[in-house]
Each structure stands twice: as C-alpha cells, then as structure tokens.
C-alpha cells in the first residue's frame, strides 16, 4: 500500500520509520527535516504500518475526532490539507493548541464529538474523517459525524475494544461496532493493530450513498 504524499519511510538511527515534515511536537527524532512518526503512539501510524487500504493521497481536508494532545493530529496536519481537530478534554487540548499554533492549517476545537451540531458551523465537508475517541459508543460517534464526509470520502477509525466493554471478547466487540457502522458505511478494509496497540481494530470505510 502506498503512502500519502508527505509521508515517507525514512531512516532514523539505522531504523526505518514513518515520518512527516513539520515542526517538532515533543522529543521525536528529526532527520533532514523529517519527524519520526511512532506507530506505538499513533493508531493512524499503526494503520499505515499494517498497509490498510487508506486511499489517501495527501492534501485532503480532514476532520479528526479525539485529537488528544495532538500527537497524531500533528502528523496528519503535516501531510493533509486543512485539519479540524476535535477534542473534549481541556487538559490535552492545552497541548493541542500549542501544536496548532506551530502549524498553519490545524484548527483546534474544544467540542464533544457526540454533538456534531456544535461544530458544524465551523467544520466544512471533508474528504477524510479520522476517529480515535476511545470511549463507549464509538460506532455512534462515527454515525453522527458521517454528515461531514463527502461522497467517496474515507473514514479511518480506530476502535478500542475495552472502551466498549472491558470484559467482552474484543472480536465480539469489533463485530458489534462494525455491524452498527454498516447501516451507513461500507467497510473497505480492517485489521487488528497489534503489536502497536493491543485490542484495537483499525478500519477504513466510506459512506454508503
């Protein structure tokens, strides 16, 4: 699977790793202007490592749900176009704001992803929705935000089994979530994100017309 433009495999200390070009965010190594993108700390990074059929070319408009302190959102903003980053916890948002302040087209929004009507007056229709909310009701969040996706747009979603049910078998949880999603999305590809993230499923989908 090819990588979007603006994402490359570069060598860091003799080790190949994903990388993007942009201002440093924490202490990640930078070689020739390329910042290391650590798949252990990023579900989107892990999806790329697993070769999921993401369909991204680079430069797309993105809505990112669950941006936290901006670790992944920063890499996404490095290779994508305008990126709207939604996060509802104040503490990580404080860091996200600093990441955004270093970039030209990353827009932080302190909003609840379960209430898209509270940011639909700011966010335009996008080609890509990335979701990593790790909270109960992950499928519902994806359904509620489908309205932002253009025709043929892509949903890149990380599903954390334990957020739905700590005791249930992860595969059973993934089946449930996928079934709910299928009412309005067509699932194009999926893969478990081990060894980078335990009990997580990475999923690529497109809205049903």
């Amino acid at each position: 699977m090819s990588l979007p433009e603006g994402v490359q495999r570069r060598s860091f200390d003799g080790q190949e790793s994903l990388a993007t070009r942009g201002p440093q965010v924490s202490e990640e190594p930078i070689v020739d202007g390329w910042r290391r993108w650590d798949p252990d700390r990023s579900k989107v990074g892990a999806m790329f490592e697993h070769g999921l059929d993401h369909g991204l070319d680079g430069g797309e408009r993105v809505l990112y749900l669950g941006a936290a302190s901006g670790t992944t959102a920063s890499h996404v903003a490095d290779f994508a176009g305008p990126t709207y980053a939604v996060e509802f916890a104040p503490r990580p948002t404080r860091d996200l704001i600093e990441v955004a302040a270093d970039r030209e087209r990353l827009f932080p929004l302190l909003k609840d992803a379960r209430k898209p009507e509270t940011y639909a007056h700011v966010v335009e229709p996008v080609e890509v929705v990335i979701q990593d909310v790790a909270t109960r009701g992950q499928a519902e969040v994806a359904l509620a935000n489908r309205q932002f996706l253009e025709r043929d747009g892509r949903l890149l979603m990380a599903i954390k089994a334990r957020s739905e049910d700590v005791t249930a078998d992860p595969e059973a949880v993934f089946e449930d979530v996928c079934e709910t999603l299928e009412s309005s999305y067509e699932i194009l590809d999926r893969a478990r994100l081990e060894p980078y993230h335990d009990d997580h499923l990475g999923l690529i989908a497109t809205p049903r017309q």
Partner: peptide, 12 residues
Amino acid sequence: REATIETAREAV
C-alpha cells in the same frame, strides 16, 4: 486559525 486557537485557549 486565529479564531479557533484563541477560542480554544480561553475555553480551556
């Protein structure tokens, strides 16, 4: 950009 960063700062 200016509006969202400023708003998020104050809201946080």
